[in-house]
């Protein structure tokens, strides 16, 4: 099979079980993201793929070849480190050429490939500069160039955007996505930033406590969170606890209809703030009368908190809502996600 397969990977550090029995197939040419809070084992998993950490058990297979026991220098995988780890005494050209020179690629070819890569990443002007003369965004692109010039089968990115400011980060995320689609190479990104994961990925694996707890395309993971953790970690969600009986979901704030009956009798549903609509009249189904308690102006929209609940909803800034207003909320059945766990 083309691509990277992880089979039953385990890793412990002393008493901490950092990665628990992770198995996953990552397809060739896919932008795959490991998303999770700090300490969830995502970076450890990435380092084991790179060969910088040895797993306790499990196997790693790359394009049908078992690379479990190979050290980092023998794996056709390159990494963009969180701190970029550029060699401070080498200029940009020599930094990017490092991997090719390690493998004794002839000088003419080194020149050509480094030049092409630097031009692709719009770094052609700064070949003679040194790392300490670069801005954060430039350093990040050099780190990317240094890895990509080796044409790795898999490119690993360890939180590459964490050192950039918010505006630059948003821009780089889109660029990274475009670059990956152009090169059609396998990228594996580690991040704790859910927006970043949604923007760049083909597939997201949400990790918690060393395990992958949900896996799917960004839309699948965002629209149908399986459990409370995913619902709250990706975006925000109103979690409502209640009992399901007689085909209806009974909660403290009201009785709601669901699209599909859940597998449990007592549990949670989630509804995203932007999925709740404000209605002038009482909706046919799942209406909720609520009072505005707080309004936060966010430029592009308003975040409104209401009682009972508290329920949070997001609406356009165009609406003329004041604190104390009583509104009808429409919690349409198709917008409600039923959490399985």
């Amino acid at each position: 099979m083309k691509g990277l397969s992880l089979k039953g990977i385990n890793k412990t550090f002393g008493k901490v079980h950092a990665v628990r029995d992770v198995s996953k197939d990552i397809h060739s040419g896919e932008f795959f993201t490991l998303l999770g809070p700090s300490g969830c084992g995502k970076t450890t998993l990435l380092r084991m793929i790179a060969g910088l950490e040895l797993q306790d058990s499990g196997r790693i297979i790359l394009d049908g070849e078992d690379i479990t026991g190979l050290p980092a220098i023998k794996r056709h995988i390159n990494t963009v480190f969180q701190s970029y780890a550029l060699f401070p005494h080498l200029n940009i050209f020599d930094n990017v050429a490092f991997g090719l020179r390690s493998r004794k690629v002839p000088g003419v070819e080194v020149n050509k490939r480094v030049k092409n890569t630097l031009e692709m990443l719009e770094l052609g002007e700064m070949t003679k500069r040194f790392p300490h003369q670069l801005s954060g965004g430039q350093s990040q692109r050099v780190a990317l160039a240094r890895a990509l010039v080796n044409e790795p089968k898999v490119l690993l990115l360890d939180e590459p955007m964490s050192a950039l400011d918010a505006k630059l980060r948003a821009q780089v995320q889109v660029e990274l996505r475009r670059l990956q689609q152009k090169l059609h190479q396998t990228f594996i990104l580690v991040t704790h930033d859910q927006d970043e994961a949604l923007i760049v990925s083909d597939r997201i694996a949400v990790m918690k406590d060393g395990q992958i707890i949900q896996y799917g395309t960004p839309a699948e993971v965002y629209d149908f969170p399986k459990n409370r953790f995913v619902a709250e970690f990706l975006g925000s969600a109103n979690l409502i606890e209640g009992n399901y009986r007689d085909g209806l979901f009974h909660t403290q704030i009201g009785i709601f209809e669901l699209e599909k009956p859940p597998s449990w009798e007592k549990g949670f549903i989630a509804i995203r703030p932007e999925w709740i609509r404000i209605s002038d009249t009482e909706p046919v189904k799942n209406g909720l009368r609520a009072t505005v308690t707080e309004i936060i102006y966010r430029g592009t929209n308003l975040d409104i908190s209401l009682t009972p609940g508290p329920i949070r909803l997001r609406t356009s800034t165009y609406s003329h809502i004041k604190i104390g207003d009583e509104l009808w909320l429409d919690l349409a059945p198709k917008e409600i996600a039923v959490l399985n766990e």
Binding site: A50, G51, L52, P71, A72, I73, I77, N78, T79, F81, A85, L86, F87, F98, G99, S102, R103, R146, A147, N150
Partner: peptide
């Protein structure tokens, strides 16, 4: 680690 990642002896 970066040097190892870049196939350095």
């Amino acid at each position: 680690e970066a040097a190892q990642d870049l196939y350095a002896s």
